[in-house]
């Protein structure tokens, strides 16, 4: 059997559609995940014990189990529990968003922790307190410090999104491996989708490093 690198090109349009689905899903879940993650990171600092407990349980649960089982649970178990079929796309969004929220909340937690204590003292000395302190001083600095990790999270989420192929969503992984099965050309097709994933993820990881040095330089006071 010889290697024919032209095969994947015959199916470029189908692969492109798959990539589109993967990217769309990643971006939607990233956006929801960032919002959810920020709220969760705040909930973990709440004065109310039950709020803290729920937040911690949620984060640890989604970080402590395989994403695949999270996906299966939401695809197969949730509909039985709620007695309704939310549909594949909604289920995929729900599942990956919950995962993204859990890892992002850790990102924000670390970012909040890295703001020096002196910043809080200074604000009290200047009379900046409460909500103003949170909005004008803490949040912008936390966001800045979180950006590099948020980018890494985006890459991680994009890679994890390949799992939705396991529940029959037509993403890049699913379309690519279907073509591989149908054509009996797994080497060419699987290598091709690996390269496509790489082409998207690799430049992003390079940007992470650049952005990180720039932000750290800015924040080095």
């Amino acid at each position: 059997m010889h290697f024919d690198p032209t095969i994947p090109f015959k199916y470029w349009d189908a692969l492109l559609i798959g990539l589109g689905t993967s990217l769309r899903l990643t971006l939607i879940c990233l956006a929801i995940g960032i919002a959810l993650g920020f709220v969760t990171s705040q909930a973990r600092r709440s004065r109310l014990m039950p709020v803290r407990a729920v937040a911690i349980f949620y984060v640890e649960l989604f970080r402590g189990t395989p994403v695949l089982i999270q996906l299966f649970w939401i695809f197969y178990c949730l509909p039985m529990l709620i007695g309704a079929e939310p549909g594949n796309f909604i289920s995929a969004v729900l599942s990956l968003s919950l995962y993204a929220g859990a890892i992002t909340s850790e990102t924000f937690r670390a970012a909040l922790k890295s703001i020096p204590r002196e910043q809080y003292d200074t604000c009290r000395a200047l009379g900046i307190t409460g909500l103003r302190l949170a909005i004008w001083v803490v949040l912008p600095q936390a966001l800045l410090r979180a950006i590099p990790t948020l980018l890494s999270n985006a890459v991680a989420l994009f890679k994890e999104s390949a799992l939705i192929s396991a529940v029959g969503m037509a993403d890049l992984m699913f379309i690519g491996s279907s073509i591989a099965n149908r054509t009996g050309r797994p080497v060419e097709m699987l290598t091709a989708i690996a390269i496509i994933y790489f082409t998207v993820a690799f430049p992003l990881t390079r940007i992470v490093g650049r952005v990180e040095t720039r932000i750290l330089r800015r924040l080095a006071v």
């Binding site: 020096p116 003292d121 200047l126 900046i128 004008w136 001083v137 912008p140 600095q141 800015r218 006071v221």
Partner: peptide
């Protein structure tokens, strides 16, 4: 303070005007 504690995310002018 000893360690300046300027707001790193704001320029100098806005460091002064924030409060």
């Amino acid at each position: 303070f000893q360690h300046y504690t300027l707001f790193p995310h704001l320029d100098i002018l806005r460091n002064l005007t924030l409060a």
